[in-house]
Simulated scan of single mutants.
Amino acid sequence: MKLVVVSAGLSVPSSTRLLADRLAAAVDGRTPVDIQVVELRDLAVEIAHNFTNGFAGRSLAAALDAVTEADGLIVVTPVFSASYSGLFKSFFDVLEKDALAGKPVLIAATGGSARHSLVLDHALRPLFAYLRAVVVPTGVYAASEDWGAEGLPERIERAAGELGALMRGLSTVSPAKQPTVVPFAEQLAALSPSASQRRPAQSSPSGV
Rank of each mutant, 00 (worst) to 15 (best):
V182Y: 14
A189V: 04
K177P: 05
R168K: 09
Q178P: 09
R168V: 06
Q197R: 15
R198V: 08
M167A: 00
A176Y: 06
L163E: 03
L188I: 15
P179T: 00
V182W: 15
Q178G: 12
R198K: 12
K177L: 15
Q197E: 15
S192L: 10
Q178D: 01
S192V: 09
L166T: 00
Q197K: 13
A185N: 07
L191D: 12
P183N: 03
P179S: 01
R198A: 14
V173N: 02
P183M: 03
T172C: 09
L170W: 04
P193R: 10
E186S: 10
G164F: 01
A189K: 06
L166K: 00
L170S: 06
A165W: 04
P183D: 08
Q187W: 13
G169Q: 11
A195K: 08
A189M: 10
L163G: 03
F184R: 05
L188A: 13
V173S: 04
E186G: 06
V182N: 11
L191T: 06
A185V: 13
F184P: 10
E186L: 12
S196W: 13
V182A: 09
S196V: 15
S174A: 02
A195Y: 04
L166F: 08
P183R: 04
V182T: 12
L191V: 01
G164I: 01
S174H: 08
F184Q: 11
R168A: 10
A185K: 14
R198L: 09
K177Y: 06
S196I: 12
Q197N: 10
P193A: 09
R198E: 09
S194V: 11
P179C: 09
T172W: 05
S194D: 14
K177F: 08
L170Q: 01
G169L: 06
S171L: 02
K177C: 11
L166V: 03
M167E: 02
S171Q: 03
Q197D: 13
P193L: 13
L170D: 03
L166P: 00
L170E: 02
Q197Y: 15
A190D: 04
